[in-house]
Amino acid sequence: MITVKNLYHDYEGKGHYAVADISFTAESGKIFGFLGPSGAGKSTVQNIMTGLLTLQKGEVLYDTQSVRDLKTSFFNRVGVSFEQPNVYSSLTGYENLAYFAAQFSVPTLDPLKLLDRVGLREAAHKKASEYSKGMRQRLTLVRALINQADFLFLDEPTSGLDPSSALLVRELIREQAQRGATVFLTTHNMELADTLCDTVAFLSDGTIQAMDAPNALKLAYGTTGVKVVTLQEGQEVETYFDLKQPQALSDFLREHEVIKVHSMEATLEEIFLRVTGKELKA
């Protein structure tokens, strides 16, 4: 479990906080989604949590241990996948994984099996410089998984991936939570967050604007209606019904030739816009 309490960070020391009063708990065996557009402060928070940035104010606890007191050996329990793929381009995919695997003093996974999981088995012995961006992205992701970390930080793990690769990656991320890891997922991809995360936090202008389970947010900010499309005199006609009045819907469905029925549930993207007043673009 990772607990973040009242986190602030000021890059210039002039009282302009990049992130302010950030508090949340990412639980073991769960996926915590940190959502926000570029510049919202997602990377700042993640970098403080992983120790890449100094903790200035507030607290970050891994279980009960403060980030300030952690030793280098603690990184045996941490895995980080960066948004920008950062691998040794002159080494092969296999060598990249083997290199990092040798650094850990905990049992590590077989590099070839990991590469196989993300469709890189065939390219295992090719130099990483010959990989496409998507392949390097997948290599960066599996590098973060090699030590079976207790705490996983994944920054835009499906960025630049084709749909089938993205599906493989999603499945892998889900497995990490299932084996008990705390997964901290940073993304601006609402669809990814919706399908994977147990909890999401909306970050805008360096503060958390809303935080809850995706379904709870949809209930809180969306409507409980449906849109029914019928064919009337050769024309498609849309009619809206509130699910609080099911009888009206039932009668309508019986009397008309229905083509399509759409849920009026709000998407996370719409909720983000409603909460922050900002679009969630990269």
Binding site: T72, F75, N76, F82, Q84, Q103, F104
Partner: peptide, 21 residues
């Protein structure tokens, strides 16, 4: 310099390699 430019140094920072090793 290559480790800096490829940003692999970032990956090393959050690994148990450590400065001594």
């Amino acid at each position: 310099l290559a480790e800096k430019q490829e940003e692999t140094v970032k990956a090393m920072r959050i690994s148990p390699i450590g400065v001594h090793r």
